[in-house]
Design a binder for these strands. Structure first.
Length: 694
RNA sequence: GGACGGUUAGCUCAGCUGGUUAGAGCGUCGCAUUUACACUGCGAAGGUCAUAGGUUCGAAUCCUAUACCGUCCACCA
């Protein structure tokens, strides 16, 4: 009876029939969904599985509704993350960046990328994602490179890009600058050291930066230190005596510690600002490897924490350290590798984003984008209001290399080398610089203006702005805000009309899933256990915008089992309705229907109305529950049971209801519904070509 | 310090444009049948909807406060 043996056969059938392909020339209305490009780092996790299940349900629903749907897949090169994964992979083979050199390294990186990519792509297909594979995009491919170059050049020409030595967050492990948004804070218990600075005493947690101090600062309103302001004092340091001035600055909190701070403009953001205001010199004490520089005298070469420990005895001995106390505070760590980041001065590229952000705020305030849940509108606006210039350069090899070329003092912005003797900037662009352009670059942005040898289909006019985008909340600033800013800057339009933030799946204690905790649950496990459709259904029950869910293997198994049973129930219903029918000359639906027929059809009609509404408002969990209850408790338990006494009269209604239900269930359980659908005597080539019954 | 979300059955969660006895899944207990389906059917137990006030004819749902949990932002030298 069943023409398919496995889910993968159904998937192949759909692909072969090109049922996932968008048709830009169609006269149907379009509906476009942009798949967030997963990072090129390996397996898809549960959150991805949920995200993709939601995307696919919406895409399939809109297709059935008669839209020309574009569900566009792609992958992000994920600069820092990929590079550190790859370097670890190389280390296992005794290789390294130093041994390989940039060119060879990149060659191997692309091969490694292909390997990882295969596993990603396989997972997507396994989940049943009805994506248009013919239009798949990778952020480093040529089409994107040209778009990213255009983005850079446009900012550059508009005077929005500048380069220079500024204080940045530096990750000593990844050996690159990172952004504020890539920094996390961890609560740590450390010591607060009280140090004598000439006549004054001040408190610090970082005595090792003492070598970079160029002033002391107090609050101008602080009466205690009024007489010291502007004066210079001789300070005892571990490098001998040194003269230091006291400056007055509003940022100093008179109530913290002694009300006096040491100013280290080279290694602290606030001190850097103070230094600028008071024209203080900058001394670099910590280098890019997180070790002390020659400025630290005999402590040079030590790591920050080593140096701190090593210098305490000497500080005590010289009478500089007068008191220490326990102190709990937040320490900045790299979001990716969790090592402590150091503010240091480095030569980096920046984009002035204030104006771009202002325009984005206006766009959001016009409600051009519907955020789910709604409070993200406010969250994003608040962030955009306080935005800092964007540090876009990273000291990596994996990424879009900064398209700037140097020859002596000459500078040119160009994608390819301008000629002999020109050297390209060594750094690459922040991953989010290209991801932020994703809504445009995926659609062949610039094809209109470019007429080079590269041929890119221009889909922008038809599919932009996107109708639907989904994301985990954790990248709302890194990615979502950037897409809004960038799209608006280049097109004066919103990148997407609906922005769905799904919740985070956590373990039962409310912790994030992570490799280090080992609390992860593989989607592949659930699929193996309960099947794709059941896994998808289990995930839809958690797909409420912005609401986190606590899950364990056990709770997911429970739901998986539940929906696996549901799938079995449907198969049995189909067996009863189609396979075990008692007669072949079934009656057509008559005007004088039985009251049970009227009852179930009426229930169905109202179900369809609710499911349609809930899908349109993206309340997938409600739609799923509703269909489940109808099928199991109205259709099977009541109507089918009653129909057994007058089977022949009921046959038409049985088939009608079952078929309609398969159609409205298809967005959620695509494989099962196709399997059942194919068993009807009269059917289209695929359930995907059916019409939504409303 | 600022913003936001959560607190409902043993567990995981729905419900919250206020309106009859507050729902689901899993779990528990009882009964039934070998049935399209035991990956079943029927039924039961189990909740002062965090707490305290308020609005209302009526509140799990709206308002205020409190407690606890969580997230995000800022970051204190």
């Amino acid at each position: 009876m069943n023409k398919f043996k496995k889910e993968s056969e159904i998937y192949e059938f759909w692909e072969k029939e090109k049922l996932f392909s968008a048709d830009p020339n169609s006269n149907k209305k379009k509906y476009s969904l942009l798949i967030p490009p997963p990072n090129l780092t390996g397996e898809l996790h549960l959150g991805h599985a949920m995200q993709h299940s939601i995307l696919d349900a919406v895409a399939r629903f809109r297709r059935l509704q008669g839209f020309d749907v574009l569900l566009l897949p792609g992958v992000d090169h994920a600069g820092i993350q990929f590079e550190s994964t790859f370097d670890k992979h190389l280390a296992k083979q005794g290789l390294s960046k130093q041994k390989l050199g940039r060119e060879k390294w990149l060659e191997l990186a692309w091969k490694f990328k292909d390997e990882i990519y295969k596993s990603l792509s396989g997972s997507w297909r396994m989940m049943g994602l009805s994506a248009d594979w013919s239009r798949e995009v990778f952020t480093l491919e040529e089409k994107c490179q040209r778009a990213v170059f255009e983005e850079f050049k446009t900012y550059y020409d508009a005077g929005l890009i500048y380069k220079g030595p500024y204080i940045v967050q530096w990750c000593p492990r990844d050996r690159t600058a990172i952004e504020d948004v890539e920094v996390e804070y961890e609560e740590r218990k450390e010591k607060l050291y009280y140090l004598k600075y000439g006549p004054l005493t001040l408190a610090t947690v970082r005595p090792e930066t003492k070598f970079g101090d160029t002033a002391m600062a107090v609050n101008p309103k602080d009466k205690r230190y009024k007489d010291y302001v502007g004066k210079e004092f001789e300070i005892e340091t571990l490098n001998g005596k040194k003269k230091m001035r006291v400056v007055a600055d509003d940022v100093v909190d008179p109530d913290f510690g002694t009300g006096v701070i040491k100013v280290t403009p080279g290694h602290d953001f606030i001190d850097y600002e103070i230094g600028k205001r008071h024209n203080l010199p900058i001394i670099n004490v910590i280098n890019k490897e997180g070790r002390l520089t020659d400025a630290a005298g005999k402590y040079a070469g030590m790591k920050v924490t080593e140096a701190r420990e090593a210098m305490i005895p000497e500080l005590k001995e010289k009478g500089i350290l007068v008191k220490e106390e326990d102190y709990v505070h937040n320490v900045a760590v790299c979001e990716r590798c969790k090592s402590v980041v150091e503010p240091i001065i480095s030569e980096e590229w920046f984009v002035k984003v204030e104006e771009i952000a202002k325009e984005a705020i206006q766009l959001i305030n016009k409600d051009a984008i519907k955020f789910l849940p709604g409070n993200y509108k406010k969250i994003l606006i608040e962030w955009l209001k306080g935005i800092h210039d964007w540090c876009i350069s990273r000291s990596l090899w994996w990424g879009h290399r900064i398209p700037v070329w140097y020859r002596g003092k000459e500078i040119k912005v160009s994608l390819k080398s301008p000629g002999v003797g020109w050297k390209q900037d060594e750094q690459v662009l922040d991953t989010w610089f290209s991801s932020g352009l994703w809504p445009l670059s995926t659609l062949g942005w610039l094809n209109k203006v470019e007429s080079g040898k590269l041929k890119v289909e221009n889909l922008l006019d038809r599919y932009f702005p996107w109708d639907f985008e989904i994301s985990a909340p954790e990248i709302k600033f890194l990615w979502i805000a950037r897409m809004i800013m960038i799209s608006n800057y280049f097109t004066k339009m919103e990148p997407f009309k609906t922005m769905f933030f799904h919740g985070m799946l956590r373990d039962l204690q409310g912790r994030k899933f992570s490799k280090s905790l080992g609390n992860g649950i593989e989607p592949g496990y659930l699929i193996g256990q309960w099947g794709v459709d059941a896994t998808r259904m289990a995930l839809y029950t958690y797909s409420i915008p912005g609401r986190d869910g606590r899950v364990s293997k056990q709770t997911l198994d429970e739901r998986g089992k539940n929906f696996r049973n549901f799938a079995t129930k449907i198969r049995n219903i189909a067996r009863f309705v189609i396979e075990l029918r008692t007669t072949d000359n079934r009656l057509p639906t008559t005007d004088n229907r039985h009251k049970d027929d009227i009852w179930i059809q009426d229930k169905l009609e109202r179900l369809v109305a609710r499911v349609t509404k809930n899908l349109e408002s993206l309340e997938l969990h409600l739609a799923v529950e509703d269909i489940y209850n109808f099928v199991w408790h109205d259709f099977a338990d009541k109507y089918i049971e009653k129909s057994k006494t007058s089977r022949e009269e009921a046959q038409a209604t049985l088939e009608y209801v079952l078929k309609q239900v398969m159609i409205i269930l298809h967005p959620f359980m695509p494989f099962l519904t196709e399997e059942i659908y194919q068993q009807f005597d009269v059917h289209r080539k695929s359930i995907m070509l059916e019409k939504w019954p409303l």
